[in-house]
Design a binder for these strands. Structure first.
Length: 389
RNA sequence: CCGAAGGUGGCAGAGCGGUUUAUGCGCUGGUCUGUAAAACCAGUUUAUGUAGGUUCGACUCCUACCCUUCGGA
């Protein structure tokens, strides 16, 4: 297997620092990561702020939850407000007034999620703005330019994700496409990046051979991190585990590992125990806006949905409890379930803010506990405690 | 008391002399995983102020009564 220490050091020297703090079992580990915009420890859950905003939260909220790395999305920022506007504001950190690390997705995911409005070619993708129908072209080079313009600390290569339903041939085509686009992404990155870092993305669908080949494609390049992507990752728990089991013994342990779109509490334990360091998911903030709270094992629930509680149900109007006894967030310190239930049923805007704070704090607190357990070498026990509940 | 308008499912609010019938909100349940998502899907009430009349058939037309709102005494 290709060893990359020298090449990583060459690329990572001044832009990202990785210090390994601990290991628990064969795969779970803790890194301290330093970027242009500060430090964070892994394994880390990264809240998603697609358009330059974690919906309904200000930087005060984000800082208080302990989120030290968040996402933004190149495709969405490109359409609105436009990359130049972000640049004129001094980059995404200044624009948002958020002082910690920001990772941008390349827009590759939108090739899947907006697939009906796209024309995919060898060199890039034609798409129509969902806002006004304007036609645009995006390529690996442009995606990297845009991300450098946005000024994120971690740039994702422009990839071609596979669908769950892809045949071997389709997944193979997208895997090759992803490799080609990574090389183009990397060339552009090398030319223009300053403090940024770049991650490549493993594709290959639900096929062991393709995943392993794609892993090689990615880690043969001197990228700072290796992401695992595709529709199945995150979305399909069993396939996510399967994919990681295929590659976990081959993935370069000296680089950061990122599963894109993971996940729920269950999923996080599964991926961390397979050596994943980073993951993001819209679920905590999205379900918050729908009135679903993330709850801990202490709070009960049924087997299939034991980490969620729909607090819009009328029975909760009479609850004086906080959402979760384990949680220490602003919301749980100050408000009852009954009040938040009322806010949702009255469509009060405060509901979205309070429940988003709670759900994200549940995730960041869980991650703090996970990192602590890895440092104490008790990760497997912690996992069992949550998973076997 | 006089004049005007009107009374439709939990609420708001269309429609028409005759297959099924608005629609919205609410309520109940479900979905949610690199955010076109404070979204979406499904279910829920088989409603026509009361009493008569006309008609093969009335929520729809006619009569009386009751009630509501707005004017005027």
């Amino acid at each position: 297997m290709y060893t990359t220490n020298e090449s990583i050091n060459r690329i990572m020297k001044d832009t990202i620092k990785l210090e390994k703090i601990a290991q628990s079992g064969k795969y779970a580990r803790v890194f301290e990561v330093t970027t242009e915009h500060g430090k964070f420890e892994t394994p880390v859950f990264m809240p998603v702020g697609t358009t330059g905003s974690i919906k309904s939260l200000s930087f005060r909220d984000i800082d208080e939850l302990g989120a030290r790395i968040i996402l933004a999305n190149t495709y969405h920022l490109f359409l609105k407000p436009g990359i130049d506007i972000v640049k004129e504001h001094g980059g995404i950190n200044h624009f948002m007034n958020y002082n910690s690390t920001i990772l941008t997705d390349s827009g590759g995911f939108q090739i899947m999620s907006l697939s009906k409005n796209l024309k995919i070619e060898k060199d890039g993708v034609w798409f129509r703005s969902y806002l006004n129908g304007d036609r645009f072209f995006i390529s690996p080079e442009l995606s990297i330019d845009y991300q450098i313009g946005i000024g994120s600390d971690i740039i994702m290569a422009f990839d071609h994700p596979s669908f769950i339903s892809d045949t071997f041939e389709e997944a193979k085509y997208k895997k090759e496409h992803t490799k080609d686009w990574l090389m183009k992404s990397f060339d552009e990155f090398k030319k223009k990046a300053s403090y940024q870092n770049i991650f490549g993305i493993v594709q290959g669908g639900n096929y062991e051979q393709l995943r392993k080949e794609s892993l090689d494609d990615i880690q043969n390049m001197p990228v700072n991190g290796i992401a695992i992507g595709g529709e199945a990752i995150g979305y399909d728990k069993n396939q996510t585990i399967q994919t990681l089991d295929w590659i976990k013994d081959y993935i370069d342990p000296n680089r950061l590992h990122y599963t894109m779109g993971v996940g729920d509490i269950d999923d996080i334990f599964e991926v961390v125990s397979r050596g994943i360091d980073m993951f993001d998911c819209v679920s905590p903030t999205r379900i918050a806006r729908k009135g679903t709270a993330i709850v801990s094992f202490e709070n009960g629930g049924n087997k299939t949905n034991r980490f969620r509680k729909d607090i819009t149900k009328s029975i909760y109007l009479k609850s004086f409890d906080k959402i979760d006894p384990w949680c220490d967030c602003f919301t749980c310190r100050n408000y009852s379930i009954g009040y938040i239930c009322h806010l949702f049923r009255s469509h009060e805007l405060l509901a979205y803010n309070l429940l988003s704070i709670h759900n994200l704090r549940m995730m960041t607190k869980l991650m703090e506990e996970i990192r602590e357990s890895i440092k104490l070498n008790t990760f497997e026990e912690l996992k069992a405690k949550w998973m076997n509940y």
